[in-house]
């Protein structure tokens, strides 16, 4: 699955938000997660984000499988944590090398929540923002248009490359070639008949793309217009202010230990 495929074709309030709001939110949440450890705050945020994500109309089945990809990672943290952190007063379980205390459990849960909150911010962005609006947002936030376009083209062709690589593998297997056999070094060498055509395909595709860009007037005018430009509405502006103000204040409050469990 690629980032491209994550977009949910719907029209919800979250979809209509200026992509910059969602980009800023995702970035701020990521920073926030590095600093913040207050478990209640994290949990509250996590729940709020889940509500927002579900309001984009993503199917629960699809979302839960994506969330599980990250969740697995978080779960491993929680499970392994007691090996490294044995401090704390309230012992819940003691197997000498594996000692679980309430304090360390909370710390590991807070870490897991940070990962989930961080991921949720990006899920929210990618579920509700088309590739082009995402790029528009990045460009308006200062990224050069050429770079934004390259980024979106790269995202667009990742699934195509994977598909083509599978077809190449099929073609070579049909010629009696064993791709998946032998030890690791052999396997890498075995992949040459797949890699060379993939590389050639990539070259030909990029030639095609550049010919097509020029044929579609790319670079014809110093100023580009946009069919559907993004505009900051009052709601967007209010939300940006809210994020920009509230996230750093929460971090400061937390660092000063002003909110406590």
């Amino acid at each position: 699955m690629s980032l491209m495929d994550m977009y949910v074709h719907r029209d919800t309030p979250i979809h209509r938000l200026d992509p910059r709001v969602k980009i800023i939110l995702a970035v701020f949440l990521t920073i926030f997660c590095f600093f913040l450890s207050n478990i209640l705050l994290l949990f509250g945020l996590f729940l709020l984000l889940q509500l927002l994500i579900l309001s984009t109309g993503v199917s629960i089945k699809r979302y839960s499988s994506s969330l599980w990809l990250v969740g697995r990672f978080a779960l491993i943290f929680v499970i392994l944590w007691p090996f490294f952190d044995k401090t704390g007063e309230t012992v819940l379980l003691d197997l000498s090398i594996y000692k679980v205390t309430l304090e360390s459990l909370l710390r590991s849960l807070s870490l897991a929540l940070r990962i989930l909150v961080m991921a949720s911010g990006w899920f929210l962005l990618l579920y509700s923002t088309t590739q082009s609006r995402l790029v528009r947002g990045l460009v308006k936030l200062g990224m050069p248009y050429d770079l934004g376009l390259s980024l979106s083209i790269a995202l667009r062709y990742i699934p195509h490359f994977i598909e083509t690589m599978d077809m190449i593998k099929d073609a070579q297997v049909s010629r009696g070639y064993e791709v998946d056999s032998g030890g690791p070094w052999r396997r890498v060498r075995n992949f040459i008949p797949v890699l060379i055509p993939t590389f050639v395909f990539a070259l030909r595709t990029s030639e095609g793309i550049s010919a097509s860009l020029v044929s579609r007037g790319y670079g014809a005018s110093p100023v580009r217009t946009y069919h559907r430009d993004i505009r900051v509405r009052h709601t967007d502006a209010a939300l940006i202010t809210l994020i920009v103000v509230s996230v750093p204040s929460a971090i400061i409050l937390d660092l000063m230990n002003l909110i406590s469990i």
Binding site: T164, M167, I168, D170, A171, Q172, S174, R175, I192, P193, I196, P197, V200, F201, R204
Partner: peptide, 12 residues
């Protein structure tokens, strides 16, 4: 035997 459409998926 299987002849695929695109020769560039196999020539190496």
């Amino acid at each position: 035997g299987y002849l695929f459409q695109n020769p560039d998926h196999q020539i190496f």
